[in-house]
Design a protein around this nucleic acid. Structure first.
Length: 495
RNA sequence: GGUGGGUUGGCGGAGAGGUUACGCACCGGAUUGCAAAUCCGUGAAGACCGGUUCGAUUCCGGUACCCACCUCCA
């Protein structure tokens, strides 16, 4: 069996993954707070874990892996948006508006992550479904002397947990020295954090031993991971920005509530995303969502490929150049599939997946090394395709399929979203393009190359890709397709 | 100020104390009416300073620069 090695943030070393129970490998990823569309950076931990889960499924069997990713649907930003809608004149209750907001955001999130080829987790718990468990956990922490009540709040007492700060390599004293936060007067220690806070009447709240209130930010992950994976599980992950305070606080809560259990064995943190070499931020104007890219006609698998080209523990840059490079690569794969993979090929089997790709991934999810191996396989598949040898082709596409590259269609989004239905109808029966191709073929036959080239250039200007193959011309829509120019082209050449 | 990470050819990016990483782009050639696609091939590197070594991009020390977190942003 292939040994998976992962860099554990907790120990800062690459370690063997030794499952607590190989019959049930358990992992938890901190999911989104569902107040708005997922931005591009949100996609990174999802894709990192997607690759990890695919690898675990391959090695341990999909029935022996449990993947949990939560939705945090209690949050001040959600409340703010609901209140904004209420103020704007919505007749719905604030509670209904909150539900409306979180439901639509979860729907968007699913659609966007699906487009990236990310598999859905086994469980996607929502914080609001686990309020009871959070209240119980808070009560338990108070009973064990790790938390205290003050002015309607429940606070975690960081001084009661000697390991506080270990994950992120900080001492409580250092953090206090550099803290820039206002310290609430009722805290025993400035670093104490909120487990429960009171809610006023116009905010969502639940009855608790400490009055009507709502949970603090970190407790939901401790409660949900314990409920679905138990107090001791294998892997816990998220973006590097969650290392402190979120994960540090989770560890404090969970370890104090379940002493001796150990919580997560391995902590995995992905580095941050940059855009054209700069931090993505609203103020720099380079902030965008996954949906923004999809709507521009960039295929989800293009985004996926760009992400997999960078190791998860390095800062990743999203750039126009990398986007183009990934599109070219996917187009090549699509060409090879069309030319070399029989339509009636047998189903891909686990045995078809390349061992070297698995080994690369097992080595701390070295996706870039896996892709490098894939380029070798691409070459073999191309050569084999010419010789009518199916096996290297099968292995190549089975491995691509395993890595989540199944559509290999960089124009799919364009066809499904951006093109208006009327134009889409025309294109679906292909009348305009087909008749123009015929006109060009006739011109070439008559050796009227000026006319033939004019049509070809017209296609390019209208955003239609045309390739002449041995089997005749093939066409597809490119990014920037312009139906008007295509119609004009058809008029000019009498097609 | 505290903590952690990084600096490899135009771009992305890896392993290894000594042998071409690889991919993209570029350039040259083949093919094509011209393109595209495809095929063949060349060139190009490891922030800076010192140390260890027969030999370092790879180990050690220092310097510079960059990034992130310490602010309920993955």
């Amino acid at each position: 069996m292939v040994q998976i090695r992962l860099t554990n943030t907790r120990t800062r070393r690459k370690e063997d993954l030794v499952p607590i129970d190989p019959q049930n490998v358990r992992l938890y990823l901190c999911g989104p707070t569902v107040y708005d569309r997922a931005h591009l950076g949100n996609a990174r931990p999802v894709l990192v874990f997607d690759v990890l889960v695919r690898l675990l499924n391959h090695i341990y069997g999909a029935d022996h892996v449990t993947y949990v990713r939560n939705f945090t649907d209690v949050d001040d930003k959600i409340n703010a948006e609901a209140q904004r809608r209420k103020t704007a004149g919505s007749p719905l209750s604030l509670e209904a508006l909150i539900n409306e907001r979180t439901a639509e955001t979860i729907g968007w999130y699913h659609a966007d992550m699906d487009a990236l080829g990310a598999m859905r987790p086994d469980h996607e718990p929502r914080a609001t479904q686990y309020i009871t468990q959070m209240i119980a956990m808070n009560a338990d922490l108070i009973a064990k002397g790790h938390a205290y009540e003050a002015e309607g709040h429940v606070l975690f007492d960081v001084r009661s947990f000697p390991d506080y700060g270990k994950l992120s390599g900080r001492s409580v004293d250092d953090m206090i020295a550099g803290a820039r936060v206002e310290v609430a007067p009722f805290k025993r220690d400035p670093m104490d954090f909120v487990l429960w806070k009171p809610s006023s009447g116009d905010l969502p709240g639940w009855d608790s031993p400490w009055g009507r209130g709502r949970p603090g930010w970190h407790i939901e992950c401790s409660a949900m991971s314990a409920a679905l994976l138990g107090p001791h599980f294998d892997i816990h992950g998220g973006g590097l920005d969650l290392q402190f305070p979120h994960h540090e606080n989770e560890i404090a809560q969970s370890c104090c509530a379940h002493p001796g259990e150990g919580f997560a064995n391995i902590w995995l943190h992905n580095e941050m995303l940059q855009v054209e070499g700069k931090k993505m931020s609203k103020s720099l104007g380079n902030f965008f969502t996954v949906r923004d890219l999809l709507d521009k006609g960039i295929a989800g698998e293009v985004i996926r490929l760009v992400f997999l080209e960078t190791h998860y523990r390095k800062p990743m840059d999203w750039s126009e150049e990398r986007r183009q490079s990934a599109e070219r690569r996917l187009s090549k794969w699509a060409n090879i599939r069309r030319n070399a993979l029989p339509k009636d090929h047998r189903p891909f089997d686990k045995a078809d997946i390349d061992d070297q790709v698995i080994e690369a991934l097992a080595n701390d999810l070295n996706t870039h090394a896996a892709l490098t191996r894939l380029y070798e396989m691409e070459r073999a598949a191309k050569d084999a395709g010419r010789d009518q040898d199916i096996e290297p082709v099968m292995r190549f596409f089975a491995t691509l399929d395993f890595l989540g590259f199944t559509k290999l269609d960089i124009h799919q989004q364009q066809r499904s979203n951006s093109v208006s239905e009327a134009v889409s109808d025309v294109l679906d029966n292909g009348s305009l393009v087909e008749s123009l191709l015929t006109a060009r073929a006739e011109a070439r036959k008559a050796r009227d190359f000026a006319r033939a080239d004019a049509i070809r250039d017209g296609f390019a200007a209208a955003g239609v890709d045309v390739k002449d193959t041995a089997a005749g011309p093939e066409w597809s829509l490119a990014t920037g397709f312009d139906a008007g120019r295509l119609a004009e082209l058809a008029r000019n050449f009498g097609a």
